[in-house]
Design a protein around this nucleic acid. Structure first.
Lengths: 273, 273
DNA sequence: TTGCTTGTATCTCTAGACGATACTATCAAT
DNA sequence: ATTGATAGTATCGTCTAGAGATACAAGCAA
């Protein structure tokens, strides 16, 4: 009896794009509190309430309240002498929970270990998240640039080998849309930023079953990656092998390391998850 | 003019113990929202709103609102078919920020890499956090139990080699208090749970400069750890070398691996941070 | 089909968050 | 030392945004 035509309208107009929006159920205080947490996170040094207020757009009182609350709960810690805040180790707990909860990561880890053992290079597992890839497993062999060792790092999908490997298994239109929406700021002088040129690389990856990026994300580094696809053909992650371009040229990477990455990705997919 | 005597009373009665408490600045909504996030995190499977409500003590409406909000913000994702929530990859961003922000981690990483290279065992860096240690760097050599590969894992300090190594550099009374306050549930049949027995181990670590735990946290594993101490003698972290007890007995660990852990811890401390 | 459970939507009321403001501490410049 | 600028801390009245009861819908099992 109480079927509102206007509800249908609203659903029709918003349903396509918006999975969730500024709804009656939305709790603003939680959003603001998390904004404070993220504001502190984006700075490597510690930050004071005034700066937090500036970064979040909140007023000083609000910044003060949320920072205080986050500190009370243990997510932030306060340097008593500077009275400034930084992230506390507690936030690692959430990451730990996530890593434990994803069956792909658990399944993949032993295969990645074996791969690292046999190729003696850095081996990573990445997942697609929005426009970026996120590294969830990182197995270094030698010393590495510090940034290349940290779990949770994210870089744009369009300029990473793992990203292109995964995009190559998405419908062409979807991949193109993602590339077009990405902020294509070059990370190095070698980053390919032209949409068509990136699509050519993705097409090549689709043909070859792997993608190679030479110095596009990090100068001096060449990476090959193979997509892990599920039973429906959907890409779920990518196996990376990374090495110094000083030691290995592109042909060698293609001939020797690409098949290893592909084989490992197949093994992981074969594990069924 | 408006000085309330009762304020002084309140301050005097609570000021000693509480650095921060249920204060006027405390934002309850943020606390509840984060409780929902943690409730989802503690389950490896996905959870529905009713279950969230039960775990957090909130009513169903509140659980619904916070879960919805966290989903809108990208911290949770919802399986559309089961309508249940799980952590999203987004939470890794906070961990990444933390890892990048701690100078000790960045400084230690190359030394740990070298150590892993030379000992060919798993090498970890842990920090003390409350009653636990938290692993912040994990460099495996071979395949490992999955739990032994994840950053953010925490185990009680009293029964880990790294924990005892750090406790051995704290004032005796402080170390004892921490052990006494720890819930001393055995993790394996070999876990030492008696306070005095643990204190003996800590005293031994103080004398030796390192601690050894055989199968106390994980069956089949023996670990040696050395504390990283700053210029004031305060323990800031611990370097672990972990291996299978099938391959190495305690004497060998003591003679061969302990000096390597100690040397690496010294190098890291010498780096000054 | 019926009944039970769990997720979703709506509404009213008031607890509690907001934000203006005043106070205090710190530090730098003169 | 004195002054002034900046940043953190504390207080309080107002009113909105969130609490929580309830009704509704959807899924599942018997």
């Amino acid at each position: 009896m109480v079927k509102h035509a206007l509800n249908d309208d609203a659903a029709a107009s918003s349903g396509v794009v918006a999975p969730e929006k500024a709804n009656a159920l939305f709790v603003g205080s939680l959003e603001r509190g998390l904004a404070v947490l993220e504001a502190v996170a984006t700075e490597r040094r510690d930050v004071g309430v005034t700066e937090i207020a500036a970064k979040t757009g909140l007023d000083k009182s609000a910044a003060q309240r949320f920072a205080f609350t986050l500190q009370s709960l243990g997510y932030l810690e306060k340097n008593p002498s500077t009275r400034r805040f930084k992230l506390s180790r507690r936030v690692l707990g959430l990451a730990h929970s996530y890593l434990r909860s994803d069956p792909l990561i658990e399944l993949a880890t032993p295969y990645l270990s074996d791969l690292r053992q046999s190729c003696q290079k850095r081996v990573d597992l990445s997942l697609l998240d929005g426009l970026d890839i996120v590294y969830v497993v990182r197995l270094q062999s030698q010393r590495e640039a510090f940034g290349a060792t940290i779990v949770g790092r994210r870089i744009p999908a369009f300029c990473s080998s793992g990203g292109r490997a995964m995009l190559s298994r998405l419908p062409e239109a979807e991949a193109r849309a993602l590339v077009e929406h990405s902020p294509r700021t070059p990370l190095t002088p070698y980053t390919i930023t032209d949409v068509e040129a990136v699509m050519v690389e993705i097409a090549r990856a689709r043909r070859d079953g792997f993608a190679i990026c030479a110095q596009e994300a990090l100068t001096g580094e060449i990476v090959v990656a193979a997509p892990i696809v599920d039973l429906n053909g959907v890409p779920r992650g990518a196996v990376h092998i990374a090495m110094s371009i000083a030691d290995h040229n592109q042909d060698e990477v293609r001939a020797r390391f690409a098949p290893m990455a592909v084989a490992t990705a197949r093994l992981i997919a074969g594990g069924g998850y």
